[in-house]
Computed example of a mutant assay.
Amino acid sequence: MTLGRAVMLFAGCMTLLSAILAWQVSEWWLLLTAFVGLNQIQTSFTGFCPAAMVFKALGAKDKAVFS
């Protein structure tokens, strides 16, 4: 799996998990959704993504996401 796809998969899973937890447990879990969204916006401007650094260290190949 490429680095970009791994980051997108992780962000999508966190968003869905947050929505499920907000529905089942507490609406405070929507703060996780807000954090993920803000992190995506921040990454688009700065290029700094902590999740990408972790996935790269785990061996994900750095390749274009869309081709």
Rank of each mutant, 00 (worst) to 15 (best):
T46A: 01
A60V: 02
F35A: 13
D62Y: 01
T15L: 15
D62V: 01
E27L: 15
D62N: 04
W29R: 05
S67K: 06
F10E: 07
K63M: 10
W28P: 15
L58Q: 07
C49A: 04
L58N: 03
L16N: 07
F48Y: 13
T33S: 13
V65A: 10
A52C: 04
I41G: 10
P50D: 02
W23M: 15
M1D: 13
K63P: 08
E27T: 14
Q24I: 14
A22P: 12
T43H: 12
A6M: 08
L58I: 04
S67C: 05
G4N: 13
G37Q: 08
G47Q: 03
A6W: 00
V25S: 11
V36I: 11
K56D: 07
T2W: 12
L31A: 09
I41P: 14
G12W: 00
R5T: 14
W23L: 15
A60F: 01
A57W: 01
L17G: 13
A22Q: 08
L58Y: 01
A57N: 06
L31R: 08
A51Y: 00
G37R: 03
F45R: 13
V25M: 13
N39F: 04
S18T: 02
T46I: 00
A52Q: 02
A51D: 02
A34E: 01
W29G: 06
A64M: 13
F55M: 11
A52P: 07
K63F: 10
L17R: 09
L30H: 08
V65F: 14
V54M: 07
C49V: 01
S44G: 10
G47C: 02
Q40M: 13
L3G: 03
T15R: 10
V36Y: 00
K56S: 09
G4Y: 05
W28S: 15
E27M: 14
I20Q: 05
T33Y: 06
L16K: 08
M53R: 15
K61S: 04
C13P: 02
A60S: 11
C13S: 14
T15F: 09
L17Q: 11
Q24F: 13
M14G: 01
L21Q: 11
L9S: 13
R5L: 15
S44D: 10
C49S: 08
A51C: 05
Q42P: 09
A19Y: 09
F55V: 02
L9A: 14
F35H: 02
V36T: 01
T43F: 07
T46L: 00
G4I: 05
S44Y: 05
S18C: 11
A57D: 06
I41N: 10
T46E: 03
K61M: 03
Q42S: 12
A52G: 09
S26E: 11
L30N: 09
W28Q: 15
W23Q: 15
L31F: 08
Q24W: 12
L58A: 06
M1N: 14
I41R: 09
M1T: 15
G47W: 03
T46R: 05
A34G: 01
T15P: 02
C49R: 00
A60C: 12
P50V: 02
Q42K: 13
Q42V: 06
K63A: 11
L32M: 09
